[in-house]
Computed example of a mutant assay.
Amino acid sequence: MIRVHKGRGAASNPEGRFESTRHQAEDDGWYRETDERRPATEVREELARSVISRNDSPDIGFDQAINPYRGCEHGCIYCYARPSHGYLNLSAGLDFETKLFAKTNLAGILRDELAKKNYTCKPINIGSNTDPYQPIEKTWRLTRAALALLNECNHPCTIVTKNALIERDLDILAPMAERNLVQVFISINSLDNKLASKLEPRASAPHRRMQAVKAMHDAGVPVGVMVAPLIPALNERDVEAIIEQAAANGANSIGYTCVRLPHELKQLFREWLELHFPDRAAHVISLIQQMNGGKDYYSSFATRMRGQGIFADIIRKRVQVACRKAGLHRAWDTVLDTSKFVAPRIHSPQGELF
Rank of each mutant, 00 (worst) to 15 (best):
G29E: 03
H74I: 15
E36V: 11
G294I: 11
D169E: 02
R54P: 04
V335W: 08
N180A: 11
L275P: 02
H23W: 14
R168F: 09
I242Y: 10
L90S: 02
V160W: 01
A247F: 02
H85Y: 03
R111D: 07
E46Y: 03
L90M: 08
E26G: 03
M1I: 09
R111N: 13
Q350S: 13
C76A: 09
S190H: 03
I77C: 11
M305L: 03
P135Y: 02
G293E: 07
L165D: 11
Q267T: 09
R306C: 01
S204Q: 00
P135A: 05
E33H: 12
S50C: 06
D279M: 08
V225N: 02
S253C: 11
E26M: 10
N163E: 02
K116R: 15
W272I: 01
E271N: 12
R324G: 13
N67H: 00
I2M: 11
I254L: 14
Y297S: 05
R316L: 00
Q267W: 14
T338P: 06
N154S: 13
R49I: 04
G71H: 04
R70I: 05
E200C: 06
A205Q: 09
P156D: 08
P344D: 14
L261W: 02
Q290K: 08
G293A: 04
T104N: 14
W272Q: 02
G61I: 09
Y298S: 05
R44V: 07
S204T: 10
R54C: 12
L336E: 07
D337K: 03
A215V: 09
H263W: 12
A241I: 04
Q24H: 10
L234C: 10
N129Y: 06
L273S: 00
E46N: 03
T143F: 14
P123V: 11
